[in-house]
Simulated scan of single mutants.
Amino acid sequence: MAELRTERLLLRRWRESDLEPWAAMNADPEVREHLGPVMTREQSDASVALFQEEFDARGYGWWAVEANGEFIGFAGLDDVDPEVPFTGVEIGWRLARSAWGHGYATEAARAVLDYGFDTLHLPEILAITTATNHRSQAVMRRLGMTHNPTDTFEDPTAPQGPLRPHVLYRITR
């Protein structure tokens, strides 16, 4: 599993010491605002095990992200859920609230885009989020991603209600 470095961040393999802060993030209703219900510790731990399995199998996935030697969240690439009306590889990120507002999401995502285009030779990378997640959409625009209003869709994997309308952003190599 490749490590990615930026000026301020290290994107790396997950460690046992990441499990507790990851679980705390997933138990934070503000962090989960656009993702659905908070997760239990068991669900959170299981997600990390799955992240590592998928990364090992595909050569891409979710890296743990650290700043100043401290775990602050994740960023990476994943296959688009088969239930949505698009196919491809999507970029994503999730940071602890203490890491919001420092430009870390954009910085980590740029490193992930470079990996996707330069190492994996992907022709296009997608980003999907709820229509109300304006912070993530701002990151997508800073990355140079574009949104066509015809790509707005109802995500069948999301619960009925405000989390179901989603937007799709794209960027090509």
Rank of each mutant, 00 (worst) to 15 (best):
T6I: 10
G92T: 10
F74E: 15
A99V: 06
S44T: 13
E90K: 00
V167Q: 09
V167R: 14
D81Q: 04
W100G: 09
I91C: 13
D151W: 13
L120T: 13
L19Y: 07
S98T: 09
W93T: 05
R141W: 09
G73F: 05
F51Y: 14
R5P: 06
P162G: 05
S136W: 08
I91P: 09
W63H: 06
A49N: 11
G61V: 02
A99Q: 10
M25N: 12
D79W: 14
R94I: 04
H102D: 10
G36H: 00
T119M: 04
L9Y: 03
T129Y: 08
A27C: 05
D56G: 13
T106Q: 01
R32W: 01
D155S: 15
Q52N: 14
D81S: 03
D79F: 11
L4D: 01
E7C: 15
D78G: 03
R142Y: 07
V112N: 04
L95P: 14
N133A: 04
D45Q: 08
G88C: 10
S136H: 03
A105I: 05
E42P: 04
P162A: 14
A57D: 14
A99S: 10
T130W: 02
A24P: 10
A138R: 12
E16I: 14
T146F: 03
A64R: 13
E42C: 00
V65M: 09
R142N: 00
R41S: 06
V38K: 07
P123S: 09
L19C: 12
P149D: 05
E154W: 04
H166T: 12
W62P: 03
A46G: 08
H166S: 12
T106I: 08
E16Q: 03
P162T: 05
L11H: 02
V65P: 00
G88H: 08
G59R: 11
V89T: 00
L143I: 08
G36N: 05
T119E: 12
A46Q: 07
V112H: 02
L143W: 00
V38P: 15
R41Q: 04
P29F: 05
Q160P: 10
R12C: 01
A57M: 13
M25T: 11
R94V: 02
